[in-house]
């Protein structure tokens, strides 16, 4: 799953010379405000930025931060956010056009909702209209899709855990889990590709 599907259509925006006082309520409820000069993206402001840069105008409170691509995975987004200490990041396409922003809170909510989602993999008996090879290919496609999300959750969750680990043993265990998950991901990808090519 990539982050493009998590972008909000109606995000809070303000001009660069808006007063920070006028943005206080929005920042408390929305966790960030996108600062746009017309349609040009200038930057993001989060409540943390207000503390780091206590100025009167929005443009003076903007903190420089990396941008994500809409194709980035949840795991990559969480990694960039936690390693840089950012609570929200902008998402831009390959042309540099601003598409929206994503918060750490939204990423975590999405991750947790995946824990509770129902997984259904249908096994359909092959018939004359639905040959065995097609049934096998569809089954593998379903399997790859439904195993992809939990594996991604394991990677994201273990990454978050690894940020606070002090013991070397725990760190090795987490690395072992992550390595095994990556092996599984590669295995499923290879299996699906092999069927797609056959």
């Amino acid at each position: 799953m990539n982050i493009a599907s998590l972008l909000k259509k109606d995000e809070p925006t303000a001009g660069p010379f808006s007063s920070m006082q006028s943005l206080e309520d929005t920042l408390l409820t929305s966790k960030y405000v996108a600062i746009l000069d017309g349609r040009r993206f200038i930057g993001l402001i989060t409540p943390q930025d207000c503390l780091r840069h206590p100025h009167l105008l929005a443009v003076d409170c903007i903190e420089e931060r990396p941008a994500l691509s809409p194709d980035d995975s949840l795991e990559h987004a969480v990694e960039v956010m936690t390693s840089g200490g950012f609570r929200a990041l902008p998402v831009v396409d390959t042309n540099g056009t601003y598409l929206g922003s994503i918060t750490l809170e939204r990423l975590l909510l999405e991750t947790f909702s995946m824990f509770h989602s129902n997984i259904q993999i249908s096994i359909v008996r092959p018939t004359e209209d639905y040959p065995l090879e097609k049934a096998k290919a569809d089954f593998l496609k379903d399997l790859a899709h439904h195993t992809g999300n939990p594996l991604q959750i394991i990677l994201s969750a273990t990454y978050l855990l690894s940020q606070n680990v002090t013991s070397q043993d725990d760190s090795l265990l987490i690395s072992a889990i992550q390595d095994s998950v990556r092996v599984l991901q590669a295995l499923f990808a290879e299996l699906c590709q092999a069927y797609a090519d056959s």
């Binding site: 660069p16 010379f17 840069h53 206590p54 100025h55 009167l56 105008l57 443009v59 003076d60 409170c61």
Partner: peptide, 12 residues
């Protein structure tokens, strides 16, 4: 660094 009127506000 923590002047309420930030640099962008001042230069404008």
């Amino acid at each position: 660094r923590r002047l309420p009127q930030g640099k962008q506000g001042i230069i404008h």
